[in-house]
């Protein structure tokens, strides 16, 4: 391993035993696990983040006040009336709520962020509604209403929109590796599911991260074989096909990525003016 990398792995004592002095982002199984995750991960490693898929918009039962940042993935926010009374708790917690990009969820994210809650859209789904994402982006970048920064837009703004937005989901070859229950490693969650492995957790210390990043760059460059599709997209600089779920050309992301690049530019210009 030639540079600092974060391993995104399931909560498992067996897996934790295989790594030492590593940065870990742990996928908890249950809301109650969070305290246990923190204790186990921090005994020999550094806990960088906790991820949890859940079905209800609420704070995890095991959440510690000084916890590592927690990303909660939900399918839907549900009815506002059902969680309205808990919004104040959400606002102060080290938790960000992520939802698939649907029109309803985009409205929920807008609402939550305006109430001081950290929220975002997960743009990695195959059914991502890019128009809904675009509308939310306009609210975030150009809206007058004070609100919490929304992900993954905030990540995209960080470097003037230079393909950083997927870091909000801990996806970036060379910076994060994803590990399954069996200890296989892949460059992204999608490649892990597709069994495109780059090594195993046992061999983590020997993993050539720079070579992985170079291989990823080579795959990225393959779009430039032709003068069409992603290679000529006005939004390519912010996208760079870093989203592991994104399909080339046909997914309708062009307008969104173009708007995201423009928004990154605008937001940074405004920062510069201040």
């Amino acid at each position: 391993m030639t540079q600092e990398i974060t391993v995104v792995l399931p909560f498992s004592g067996e897996l934790f035993g295989k790594v030492k002095n590593a940065n870990l982002a742990v996928q908890a199984k249950e809301s109650d696990d969070l305290g246990e995750v923190a204790a186990a991960a921090q005994s020999q490693n550094k806990l960088a983040a906790i991820l949890l898929s859940t079905s209800k918009l609420e704070l995890p039962a095991g959440l510690q006040p000084r916890s590592a940042p927690v990303s909660l993935y939900l399918e839907t926010a549900g009815r506002f009336l059902d969680y309205a009374v808990r919004v104040n708790e959400f606002a102060g917690a080290p938790v960000r709520f992520y939802f698939p990009a649907t029109p309803g969820n985009a409205v929920a994210v807008r609402l939550l962020s305006s109430l001081g809650v950290k929220a975002g859209l997960d743009l990695r789904g195959e059914n991502t509604d890019w128009d809904a994402a675009c509308e939310l982006l306009h609210y975030d970048a150009y809206g007058k209403m004070p609100h919490e920064p929304i992900e993954p837009f905030a990540s995209a703004y960080l470097q003037h929109g230079s393909s950083t937005y997927c870091e909000a989901y801990l996806e970036r070859a060379g910076k994060y590796v994803h590990c399954d229950e069996a200890g296989n490693l892949a460059n992204s969650r999608r490649e892990l599911a597709d069994r495109v492995y780059i090594g195993t957790l046992d061999g983590l210390s020997g993993l050539d991260v720079a070579a992985q990043a170079a291989a990823a760059r080579k795959r990225e460059l393959s779009v430039f074989m032709k003068l069409e599709g992603c290679s000529v997209c006005p939004g390519y600089k912010v996208c760079a096909r870093k989203n592991p779920a994104q399909k080339m050309e046909a997914c309708g992301c062009k307008d969104f990525m173009t708007a995201l690049l423009e928004a990154a530019r605008e937001v940074n210009l405004r920062k510069g003016e201040r």
Binding site: L221, F224, L227, S231, V232, C233, Y236, K237
Partner: peptide, 13 residues
């Protein structure tokens, strides 16, 4: 005939 495509291609590449 491909000025815009070439512009984005060259700057994206």
């Amino acid at each position: 005939p491909k000025a815009a495509e070439l512009y984005y291609f060259l700057t994206n590449l």
